[in-house]
Structures are given as structure tokens and as C-alpha cells.
């Protein structure tokens, strides 16, 4: 099963390598990884999407906590969260296809961020199902390039059951 882990780390050289090395050295899988500074000085937040059964996920979390530079690990699957990912898609957009692509952009509430006579670049934000649906719909026009940020996640303020 996929798990999203929020990992608060000391922002110092080598910290990414420690975390990535832990995954590769112990045979764990990283599906996506996002790192950026937080408001707190010298502290960064990593959002890691990984996969494994309960025992593997337990090991991953414990092994991460064991790293001296890791401050806190939260398994976001145990709480209600908002998860988002941003994607940039460059798609073929010849005359006849343009209108349909723009309709899809409209329906998915995406933005066109770059345009040329033969291509359109779309910026979309959402959870992974929405982005997968969008990619599927644009597929037939010919996707030329794709860039994704990986998931970022946050615990919801109200933990309604």
C-alpha cells in the first residue's frame, strides 16, 4: 500500500543523501520525494510517497527516526490530510485539437501557461487521481513532455471521522 510520510529534517548538507541512501541501502522504494525549507530556520520538510506492507512501512518510519538529522516523521495515512501535486504538461495542439484541449483545461480548472502554434503547456494542481485522469484525457493528442512536483501533504485542521 502507498503511504505518504511527512519528514521534518535538519536543513544541512547531506541530509537528502542520508534519507535517499537509507531507502536505497535497505531496498525501500521512493515513489515521489519533495523537499523544501519550512518557516523555521534550518529546518526542511520532505514529503515522501513510498510503498510497502505494514511491517515495511513500520521499518521505514523507525529507520527514518533513527537518523540523527531527522526531527519528526508523520505517517500521513494515519490522519485526514489534504494532498496536492502540481504538474506541467506540454501537449500537441494542432488547429483541430485546440478547442477540445482548452475545454479539458476548463473542466479540470487548469491553466494554460505557455502556447505556440503547435503546442500548449498546461499547469494543473490536484490530487493524484485528478492528475491521472487529466493525463489520460490528454494522451490522445500526444503528450510531448511532463514534469511533476511529487505530492505535498498537510494534516487537515478538523479530523472528522
Amino acid at each position: 500500500m502507498k503511504h505518504t510520510l511527512s519528514v521534518l529534517v535538519e536543513d544541512e548538507p547531506g541530509v537528502l543523501s542520508r534519507v535517499a541512501g537509507l531507502f536505497s541501502g535497505r531496498g525501500f522504494n521512493i515513489i515521489s520525494l519533495n523537499v523544501a525549507p519550512t518557516l523555521e530556520k534550518n529546518t526542511s520538510l520532505m514529503t515522501i510517497v513510498t510503498e510497502g506492507d505494514e511491517q515495511i512501512i513500520e521499518q521505514i518510519i523507525k529507520q527514518l527516526r533513527k537518523l540523527i538529522t531527522v526531527i519528526k516523521v508523520v505517517d500521513m495515512n494515519t490522519v485526514k490530510t489534504v494532498e496536492r501535486e502540481m504538474i506541467l504538461i506540454k501537449v500537441n495542439a494542432q488547429n483541430s485539437a485546440r478547442a477540445e484541449i482548452l475545454r479539458i483545461v476548463d473542466i479540470f480548472r487548469c491553466k494554460v501557461v505557455d502556447v505556440s502554434p503547435s503546442e500548449i503547456t498546461i499547469e494543473a494542481t490536484g490530487n493524484s487521481e485528478k492528475l491521472t485522469a487529466l493525463i489520460n484525457l490528454l494522451h490522445k493528442f500526444g503528450i510531448k513532455e511532463i514534469a511533476r512536483t511529487g505530492i505535498v501533504a498537510m494534516k487537515r485542521s478538523m479530523q472528522l471521522s
Partner: peptide, 16 residues
């Protein structure tokens, strides 16, 4: 050496 020994030390430092 800090990179090389990262997986076989409890922790390591490069003094900068």
C-alpha cells in the same frame, strides 16, 4: 569519506 561512510556510521560530520 563522509559520503562513503554514511551507510556504515551511526552519524558523521564534515567540519566546515
Amino acid at each position: 569519506i563522509v559520503g562513503i561512510t554514511r551507510p556504515c556510521t551511526k552519524h558523521n560530520y564534515l567540519v566546515k
